[in-house]
């Protein structure tokens, strides 16, 4: 279970972006979080991905209450959650080739030996051809780069996947391909999904249930 309970978070304690938001994702479930731009859903997603320490509230991941964020969080807890960001350009280290980008989590966790085999599995799954894998981010399109970012998020086989407006910048065919890749991974591993976005049609079709942002907040907020 991924459980966000009364989370208050932001970038200035005096003016939090998220106030008392709660959301639960069951194992294997896909939940769409729907809200307008600037409402705080990406900040809540960052809290769920252990990338942003909340000012108040709890995050419980598979029965373990998270007490540390970012580098301070235990590595096994951090890597239990895969994240795909909205803008692939800023989410990819410009010096790495797409192949290096995809296997970087394996290298970072000391599993370098598995890199080639995992790359051979993931590249076709997300639609990356061998000629794309040797290119750097500035040599590929946004859609191709986002495919690599999705593959990177799946490299360590996370139990939870957070897609923060993953398809907001992409055309319909790339969106369909990426959603299909996520669903294939979930079908194989039973991972839970939190898909954040403002495209109601997409989230309704993609997810088991869609939650409106206002329904995450305490009544009257």
């Amino acid at each position: 279970m991924l459980e966000l309970d009364a989370v208050t978070a932001g970038y200035d304690r005096r003016a939090p972006v998220v106030r008392g938001a709660s959301l639960t994702v069951a194992p294997g479930e896909s939940v769409g979080l729907l809200g307008p731009s600037g409402c705080g859903k990406s900040t809540l997603a960052r809290v769920a991905a252990l990338l942003h320490r909340p000012d108040a509230g709890r995050l419980v991941l598979d029965g373990t209450e998270v007490r540390a964020w970012r580098h301070r969080a235990p590595r096994e807890l951090r890597t239990a959650v895969g994240v795909v960001f909205q803008q692939p350009r800023t989410a990819a280290d410009p010096r790495l080739t797409l192949a290096d980008l995809v296997v970087e989590p394996l290298r970072a966790t000391g599993r370098r030996a598995e890199a080639d085999a995992r790359l051979a599995e993931l590249a076709p799954a997300v639609g990356l051809t061998p000629d794309l894998l040797v290119r750097r981010p500035h040599e590929v399109s946004d859609g191709q780069l986002q495919r690599a970012c999705l593959a990177r998020a799946l490299t360590l086989r996370p139990r939870w996947l957070i897609c923060d407006e993953m398809t907001a910048m992409l055309d319909a065919s790339t969106t369909a391909a990426l959603v299909a890749a996520v669903e294939a991974y979930r079908a194989e591993t039973g991972a839970g999904l939190l898909a954040v976005g403002h495209d109601r049609v997409l989230l309704n079709r993609w997810c088991d249930r869609t939650v409106e942002w206002k329904d995450c907040l305490p009544a009257g907020k």
């Binding site: 960001f85 990819a92 970072a108």
Partner: peptide, 11 residues
């Protein structure tokens, strides 16, 4: 975000 991605990837 690419640093966030590295942190999330276990770096």
């Amino acid at each position: 975000p690419f640093v966030d991605a590295a942190v999330s990837g276990g770096s």
